[in-house]
């Protein structure tokens, strides 16, 4: 579904020097796969996601989504943002319908589709509220509904639950799992939580920093549909412990290198 070949990206850092965000990254994501990407901050995982979204130009390499080379944003991909990125002046209904509005879908149709998705993410009755009137968890539900409304093939999620409290985060993880079970979208999900990466992902892509590279791809052979009770299984504990060992090594290498 997604093929990334030899992807490199650098940009000008704050001190004026060039920062290598991604260096020669190769990655394949299968159709209907839930891929989680884990790594220390500064490993380029967000840059990788934005490159797939077509939001940042790359220096070399290419990204092919569903047989088509990525040259910019496209209707086959939709993004969910860490800070929600909702329009503060627009109602929940208008926010969810925003992607459809940009694509020229008529008012009646886009509102109908938006209402259905608002109900799906459990926000029925909040259609006329504005983002400031909602909790963080509810705001991200709006963000997810907005992405689903455009009926993408690929859902790109950039630490979507990083800005909500632990309890809300758990609820959102479970809701995302059940949405994905039904829709079977291809998902690329950035996170800095080992537990989240393992609970959600079919595979966990472990990235290392400076330059951003794929250190390892760890398969997660846990049965689907997944439930919270998995957290008590030995396999789950084993994989999260392994990921933490790898991450701690990276942090120590990084400290030694300085």
């Amino acid at each position: 579904m997604i093929e990334i070949r030899g992807l490199s990206k650098s940009f000008v850092g704050q001190d004026g020097g060039r920062v290598q965000a991604l260096s020669d990254v190769d990655l394949d994501v299968a159709e209907n796969e839930f891929l989680t990407v884990l790594g220390p901050s500064g490993c380029g995982k967000t840059t990788l996601l934005k490159a797939v979204a077509g939001l940042v130009p790359v220096d070399s390499g290419e990204i092919v989504v569903d047989g088509t080379k990525v040259r910019g944003p496209g209707p086959d991909r939709a993004m969910v943002f860490q800070n929600f990125a909702l329009l503060p002046w627009a109602t929940v209904l208008d926010n969810v319908a925003f992607g459809l509005e940009l694509r020229g879908v008529g008012r009646a149709e886009r509102q109908e589709r938006a209402r259905a998705l608002i109900a799906m993410v459990g926000l029925a009755g909040f259609e006329t509220k504005r983002p400031a009137e909602l909790s963080g968890g509810m705001q991200q539900r709006v963000g997810i509904a907005r992405a689903l409304a455009v009926q993408p093939r690929v859902l790109l999620m950039d630490e979507p639950f990083g800005a909500v409290d632990e309890q809300t985060r758990r609820l959102l993880q479970e809701e995302l799992l059940s949405i994905w079970e039904e829709s079977r979208l291809t998902v690329v999900f950035i996170t800095h939580s080992m537990e989240e990466a393992v609970l959600l992902g079919d595979r966990v892509v472990l990235m290392s920093a400076r330059p951003g590279q794929i250190a390892e791809i760890v398969p997660v052979p846990l049965e689907r549909p997944r439930a919270r009770s998995l957290e008590r299984s030995g396999k789950y504990a084993e994989i999260t412990a392994y990921l933490w060992d790898r991450l701690r090594d990276m942090h120590e290498e990084h400290r030694a290198a300085r």
């Binding site: 944003p73 209707p75 943002f81 990125a85 992607g99």
Partner: peptide, 21 residues
Amino acid sequence: PAHLVEMARSYGASERQVLLR
């Protein structure tokens, strides 16, 4: 905020839509 513009662009907004919407 830059993330609002980025969001709109990710949904395929044209420059005109970014300005007006």
